[in-house]
């Protein structure tokens, strides 16, 4: 992808996400919750019938509850090997393109603070598994209607399902996942199951860039859909 497209794409998403994260409104339209606001860890959230609403932080937190949870996906994506490549090239011009001189007088890469912290990626991966689990729960709750009765499906249910499928695909295709699941082994022949899993994850890892972008877009779309429904701008079409 040309560096300019990458930079513009990232900037658009960051702008949108910043607005939505600080907005602290229109993030719940029963039964759908925006992925930016789930799980809700403060007690100033809107009531989300049976949703991931755990006021661990209690009532002293007065800002938007999205800020408490967004740090996890943000950290995950900031330290992601693909996004690193994207912003080192697209934003930091290091390098601007292959075999093109970079504009910096000095270069130390990821050898020292702060960039040495990129090595923490795997811990964000573990946290991302938890977040993906919670968003899966949210998507399942999309099969209840606004009164909490099961057996409902609307366009919103599909939007949340598509989003969570892409989030899982992105999370599982993570290079740290590939390492933990089997890449760290020296003898695949002694671990046939992990060897096979490693092969499957590797197939996804090869498409990590595609999954990074499609899940980024799907998260934005899912949030925007909830915003539209919740603000009354759009009426969620119901299938049953």
């Amino acid at each position: 992808m040309p560096p300019l497209v990458t930079a513009v794409g990232l900037a658009l998403f960051v702008t949108y996400a910043t607005w939505r994260a600080f907005a602290n409104s229109h993030y719940y339209a029963a039964p759908y919750v925006s992925p930016f606001y789930s799980p809700c860890l403060a007690s100033n959230c809107q009531d989300m019938k049976g949703g991931a609403d755990w006021p661990l932080f209690g009532s002293w937190w007065g800002l938007s509850p999205a800020l408490l949870v967004l740090v996890f996906p943000l950290g995950f994506r900031l330290t992601c090997y693909y996004y690193r490549k994207a912003y080192y090239r697209g934003i930091w011009s290091s390098p601007p393109a292959c075999a093109v001189a970079e504009p910096h007088a000095k270069y130390t890469g990821e050898t020292r603070f702060p960039l040495i912290l990129q090595n923490s990626h795997r811990y964000f991966f573990y946290l991302a598994l938890v977040v993906a689990g919670i968003l899966t729960y949210d998507a399942v709750l999309g099969f209840r209607d606004e009164h909490g009765n099961w057996g409902h499906m609307g366009l919103g249910t599909l939007v949340l399902l598509a989003n969570i499928a892409l989030i899982w695909a992105y999370t599982v295709s993570c290079h740290s996942c590939r390492h933990v699941i089997g890449g760290k082994l020296r003898h695949f022949s002694r671990h046939p199951v992990r060897y096979r899993l490693w092969g499957w994850v590797g197939t996804l890892t090869a498409r990590h860039m595609l999954l990074a972008w499609s899940s980024l877009i799907s998260v934005g779309v899912a949030d925007f859909y909830v915003y539209l429904v919740s603000s009354g701008a759009f009426d969620d079409p119901r299938f049953f």
Binding site: Y81, R84, K85, Y88, A99, G109, E110, T111, T205
Partner: peptide, 23 residues
């Protein structure tokens, strides 16, 4: 010096043998 590499994949792009050096 592994830490100097910022995984920007130019080595992979130019390798005539198509080795996925970075990944």
């Amino acid at each position: 010096g592994l830490g100097y590499c910022n995984i920007t994949k130019c080595c992979t792009e130019v390798c005539p043998e198509g080795i996925h050096i970075t990944d």
